[in-house]
Design a binder for these strands. Structure first.
Lengths: 134, 134, 134, 134
DNA sequence: GTGGTCTAGACCACA
DNA sequence: GTGGTCTAGACCACC
């Protein structure tokens, strides 16, 4: 996978990295057990401070998306479901409401939003209903 | 409308206020020309500094969602749509991708997301396709 | 670039700063990716409160003219044009009418105004018609 | 002439009035010696505080655009030229530069601006070069 | 070092 | 009463 930080973004560098990994996993570009570049490698590639990369990895580990195996590297974790169905629903609904708020404020119609969501969905790597954690 | 701020949130107070007003407008709880609580009133209610409330209102004014009328109060503005279709689309798609990323990471299926989006949509106050800015 | 604020002006300090940066960009004295003086630097130079400078920068960011990169500084943004042609036209015409009103009240003739506008135009850094947003 | 205040404007009411009279004179809708509505009349018509109207008239008198004849009313003044040609030029150029700054920032081309200025000029009531104060 | 947020408290303009 | 501006000074996140 290709990582890049936009010096021009208002987003802190470490957050840009976190987002890219999160999205990489969601799109299926990163699969469980894939190894991420080492902190030093990544920091050289992107010309950023190693501390900044380490911080991004720490954040991702805290979320359970990657696992740090000391001495060997950082790997994409197996999907876990440490949250209850209810907690996960609640979290998703918050994000959905934020999306709908923005859509209404921007003047979109309900249909346009549904259509755009469906269109973008095709680019993601969905769990089959069966494999979804219960 | 009821406003509340949570000290526990990672979101700054003024952003929490902005979000709540935005959502109030999107849900139709706040209608054009409705008066918002005065800066001082709100600052007393929420026990925050008046400057913090004023900052939220200023931000909302810059977005065109409210109009500050010095000496008279702050009011919900008539909906405008100054942004090009392109700029608005781009902004929405970013939010959609964030949503889908989170949904996949949380283990939801494509259908579940579509269903939840449709369900939550009913609580919002959509523009009719005709009145939507082109 | 040289910045200066006049205590005698009826314009608030932060607006004076905003105007000067806007004009600097329009004249081409400030180019995309140029770094502006840091908040603290500028506040020392002009002997104003850092908050006042920060407010000017925030305002400019909301207009899309500069980008604030936390921890790194404030930079001139790449030109964007998110506003619809209509919204931009309306805004410009308001300013034009204010100009013409003043010109008439000051006793200038139509030709003098046109001539002066043309003369001053040469000092600005125009978009080529092709690169202008449609 | 018809006056109106937009409760929705961010501009103070008295300034809205000042602007309308200024523009009325510049467009030729108000001619020298025309009588303006009395403070009480105007305050009733627009449903605003008489103090607010009085304040607008005071401002206009200070600018020399109207003359208050105590006991008889407020009248549009004869065009005067109490400012030197140089002072008037300087003032106009400031406004022109503000216009050009905004035009460039909004992405207009030099030609578009010249065209728009010419178009709007036709709606104003220009002094003939001869009658212009020297 | 950079910008971002918040508080406390002051003074002004507007209605 | 309303909002708008400014200062002083604090603390935090980021690089």
């Amino acid at each position: 996978m290709q990582y890049e930080i936009s010096g021009a973004s208002r987003l802190p560098i470490y957050r840009q990295l976190v987002e890219q990994v999160r999205e990489g996993i969601a799109r299926g570009d990163l699969k469980p057990q894939d190894q991420l570049p080492s902190v030093r490698q990544m920091s050289r590639d992107l010309v950023v401070n190693p501390n900044t990369v380490a911080r991004a990895y720490t954040e991702l580990e805290r979320e359970g998306l990657v696992a740090n195996r000391p001495g060997r590297g950082v790997f994409v974790a197996e999907p876990r479901a440490d949250l209850t169905k209810d907690a996960r629903r609640k979290r998703l609904i918050e994000t959905i409401d934020r999306l709908l708020t923005e859509a209404v404020n921007l003047g979109f119609s309900e249909e346009e939003v549904a259509r755009l969501v469906a269109a973008r969905s095709r680019q993601f790597h969905w769990n089959t209903p069966n494999s979804a954690p219960k």
